[in-house]
């Protein structure tokens, strides 16, 4: 799982460098988020602008991260969703669960 991790303001920003987030790489992504949580990075922004394709496993990994952040009194927010990826959040009604921002700057400023 290729991703860039940077600290910006009050949050850690994880930018995925994979075109697909699916059952092949979602567990690895989950583990990477867990490592950050265990390192005390409880406010997280996931930048999905490079992700063209997400399946239910990818959505499940993000839900897992959301629950982990919330349980640690932090928050996990999303940004940069491509239209087809955003439609998957709507189909599964997860757009009601996550705070979704157009870009990293807006997401980071919300903390």
């Amino acid at each position: 799982m290729n991703c860039d991790v940077t600290e910006q303001g009050k949050a850690v920003v994880v930018e995925l460098k994979e075109e697909r987030l699916d059952a092949h790489n979602s567990n690895e992504f989950k583990s990477q988020m867990l490592s950050l949580f265990e390192g005390g990075k409880n406010n997280m922004v996931i930048n999905l602008k490079g992700v063209r394709f997400i399946d239910s496993s990818g959505l499940g990994a993000l839900v897992s991260g959301f629950k982990n952040a919330t349980a640690r009194n932090g928050s996990l927010k999303l940004c940069g969703l491509q239209p087809q990826v955003k439609s998957m959040f709507e189909l599964t009604r997860l757009h009601r669960v996550f705070e979704i921002f157009p870009d990293t700057e807006a997401a980071v400023a919300s903390f």
């Binding site: 239910s56 496993s57 959505l59 499940g60 839900v63 189909l91 599964t92 669960v97």
Partner: peptide, 14 residues
């Protein structure tokens, strides 16, 4: 809404 699993068949059905 916060289950990690169980959305795949729902997506296919939709």
């Amino acid at each position: 809404a916060l289950d990690d699993h169980g959305r795949g068949i729902h997506i296919i059905r939709c």
